[in-house]
Design a protein around this nucleic acid. Structure first.
Lengths: 142, 142
DNA sequence: CTTGCTCCTCTAGTCGCTAGAGAAAGTAGG
DNA sequence: CCTACTTTCTCTAGCGACTAGAGGAGCAAG
């Protein structure tokens, strides 16, 4: 009978690297995979789904702890999804903050490189901007 | 005579925490500060400028290695600022990429929370979106 | 049977700090 | 001068989310 696929195959299919999958198992994000006689991990389609879920969540910038909660929710579907909603919402708020912060940063950097006359460092706008916080329009975080 | 101010004072003035300043010295981003008889670090106005430069650069998202290069440039002003310009430019490119990636992410998250009917997890749009990468419009990195 | 690939465990390193322990130095008040 | 308090010192270890490497074993094809 065929029990499942090897870790390398799951890695290919999910796009998550082999050591990362093992790491996820180690920190309890994945259940311990059943092993072959020789001691190798085997995975089924449920595992692939779970790993894909994790990957997608990571790509979207969720932290491991948040993903743990999300996975717990997924495992017990007969519950209100208010928690998942609130996690996503607060994450969205963070993303919005990050975007506005980065946009301000972008403007500042553009000002810097536009002002550079490509001469000596002495008169370089880039260096100057970095040295003098006062003239900077960017005062965000991140 | 007065040699300079203490680390706590510099920390206040620069907005960089005390252990972080010591850390910067440790990794060679700051020169070893001269010490008092009792062995405490003392700083002058040049140091304050340098630390402020570092802080500003970090706020703008430059990495320590980039800041090292930038500081080296600043120390030898009689040189072309092409390098500083190129660092800033490539950093700007990264920031732009990040912004567009995060904007796509924002849209995806908005789709997720808007679709949530606040019912059971079974039918939760948020969980569903995360489980199924196929229906996701977001395929960026970060 | 041998070659070459995948897989195993384990430890240590990455980045940019941050936290804590325990001791010594400096400062203000009595 | 003594005490109490604050600041600073060094040192080690921890964070998150991996990544890299050593050294060894399993396994499939020729």
């Amino acid at each position: 009978m065929h029990h499942g696929v090897a870790i390398g195959r799951v890695s290919e299919m999910s796009g998550v690297k082999v050591p990362t999958i093992r790491y996820y198992e180690q920190i309890g994000l994945l259940p311990p995979a059943p092993r072959t006689e020789g001691g190798r991990r085997t995975y089924g389609s449920g595992d692939l789904e779970r790993i894909t879920f994790i990957r997608h969540s990571r790509e979207l910038g969720f932290e491991i702890d948040e993903i743990k909660t999300l996975l717990d929710l997924q495992d017990t579907p007969n519950r209100s999804c208010a928690e998942a909603d609130s996690i996503a919402r607060s994450h969205l708020a963070e993303v919005k903050k990050k975007i506005s912060s980065l946009t301000a940063l972008q403007n500042e950097l553009e000002r810097m490189v536009e002002g550079c006359a490509h001469g000596r460092v002495e008169t370089c706008r880039v260096i100057e901007s970095l040295a003098d916080h006062g003239q900077c329009r960017y005062h965000g975080e991140l």
